[in-house]
Design a binder for these strands. Sequence first.
DNA 1: GACTAAGCGAGACGGTACGTCGGGTCTTACG
DNA 2: CGTAAGACCCGACGTACCGTCTCGCTTAGTC
Lengths: 189, 189, 189, 189
Amino acid sequence: MRSAAAREAILAATARQFQLRGYDNLTIEGIAKEAGVGKQTIYRWWPSRGALIAECLTDGRLFPVDFDIPVSGPVLDDVETWLDRVLAVLHSPGGSGLLRSLVAAAAEDDAVGQHLSEGIGVEQSLHTRLTLAVRAGELPADAPVDQLGSAILGAIIVQALGREEADAEGLRELVRFLLRPDGQAGSSA
Amino acid sequence: MRSAAAREAILAATARQFQLRGYDNLTIEGIAKEAGVGKQTIYRWWPSRGALIAECLTDGRLFPVDFDIPVSGPVLDDVETWLDRVLAVLHSPGGSGLLRSLVAAAAEDDAVGQHLSEGIGVEQSLHTRLTLAVRAGELPADAPVDQLGSAILGAIIVQALGREEADAEGLRELVRFLLRPDGQAGSSA
Amino acid sequence: MRSAAAREAILAATARQFQLRGYDNLTIEGIAKEAGVGKQTIYRWWPSRGALIAECLTDGRLFPVDFDIPVSGPVLDDVETWLDRVLAVLHSPGGSGLLRSLVAAAAEDDAVGQHLSEGIGVEQSLHTRLTLAVRAGELPADAPVDQLGSAILGAIIVQALGREEADAEGLRELVRFLLRPDGQAGSSA
Amino acid sequence: MRSAAAREAILAATARQFQLRGYDNLTIEGIAKEAGVGKQTIYRWWPSRGALIAECLTDGRLFPVDFDIPVSGPVLDDVETWLDRVLAVLHSPGGSGLLRSLVAAAAEDDAVGQHLSEGIGVEQSLHTRLTLAVRAGELPADAPVDQLGSAILGAIIVQALGREEADAEGLRELVRFLLRPDGQAGSSA
DNA sequence: GACTAAGCGAGACGGTACGTCGGGTCTTACG
DNA sequence: CGTAAGACCCGACGTACCGTCTCGCTTAGTC
């Protein structure tokens, strides 16, 4: 009979340590100590450090915010609103480190990787909003909405990996370009 | 007096171990042993595991191939050719694992992150080719070529992180959409 | 209401494990599993590993034989007969290991120590037989029969602890010397 | 190149912990911590807890005293003098616990067992003194001096194992009986 | 003849120690 | 003086058992 209290304490400690110290530097012993739990109790229910992170991810314990996209105007405006929200988190102290840690975890652990998209919820949100846009005729009918989501998220990740100071304007440009309402800018030329 | 032989042996061993066993599982001791070198010799010249990887990266020792983009026709064709090359490497055994390892290294280590783009050379190549395309009027003058490169690379990375079977067709669609020669694909049709 | 079946299974399992794997390497969990019993059932009735052994000891479950001394001739002959029996057990496979395990248990656990002599029954038997011998005038009236028993048993234990190949002849010599019927060898001098 | 300082610290810590807490309760981690040493350094040079004890034993670190037997009068007097010394140690606080711990170690570990006699030095001392006595005609020419040593030591051990309050008088009686200067003590009376 | 209450098997729990791996620093001996 | 070798202290790994603690499930007596 599994102890709910232990489960809760472990996941909470995992999330806290992850945010505090990053994916590497995350130790089972540290989690166990902070959670006031024996190591065996962790190993009994999770096969690996990654599985812990994956569960925190799907529980929404790693990000204190959600990234829903509003549906209140033209796609472009809505997505820019969303982008600002995302960038705000990234610029907050520890924000980009958190993203990098998450990427590291996803890169090293299958379980985390498989839950990455659902975890950040970004692809899901984008997908939904872009699909609506396609239906509304704001985007071409053949726009590969899934891929566009990956591309935008991917661009953010690539920036974070590069340790460039997050280039908000560049990302906005990208979004504007990707979602340009009709004929490409300068089409009249 | 730095020993060139030692340097060479160390970097070669690092690259081999990285490809063979991934970024985590990469140990200084393992490298030292394989290189026939004392651990101290490594620590004397490189401050961290990441620095080793970073140097392998800029030396082009991690990927056996280069990803130059041809300039022989319409951008779209050239980029698709390049994409096929990239996907071939990714589908080869260990290919996606290698990419993930690289992403893990970049996510965990600043030095690697800062050299990531130059290392894979992808952004560089794309940037160059797309700039040409802009000049040739194939792409709108205000197309954010840097961001487009990041987006394409990012989409590939996001796929790899997700452990989805690399979706070649999706990526091709994305590229076609991003580089669609004129206004909204078929929107006027 | 104590379950007789559980008690029996536990003691049997304890004895078997003790003979099989020795005193250290003897685990409560192992006993519980072999006995098909919950750990709690053991802890409910015995305070410690040692108490289990002590009870096996007094139940005569650790040695498959008893070490009664015959009363059929001169003390010396009877004791030598007994000694042969003891040595036979000691030379049998696992015999000296069993004795060492028992000594270890007695050394580490008070309960076992207190029941050691009654457990092997050796001192008891020797005491009885030697007392008879004193009465019969075979031994001096002031012979310290208790101490003689301890000495003989002790000599056997010391040999076993030393991992010397059990020196049967030496022990026989000792016994002959201790129980030399009257005037010591060379008494006529 | 082995560190002499580490060796010394480890053996000292081992001896102290052994005297303080007994053989069981003796942990490698405890020794390492007290010695200010990494566990690996212990495992590098000693295969087991027992090997540590064995080395302390042969180094004479476990007993603060030596048990030489004087040669200054009749055997019996000399041995009684020696016995008093031994009993004094045994009666000192922790004395019998120390002996029991040593017996436990010898019983559970081959290395300790093989060095037991040389470690306490008791058998050696007794052997030497008794041999002299045989030469001097104080003991019969065929007295099994080795076995007599084992018997005396063994009797002491058996007493200690039994948790009887060490029966000094009994042991003195035993010694007097074993080494009675001529024929059966008082048999002619 | 249903109803407790104890004993039971099972096994999760917070811990301690195990023996191993690798990190990064150091010392030694050689070329 | 840089090097190969490797010992050193340390922190963490994943495992084994400890002794305590629920859990439901028998299984007796008792009402």
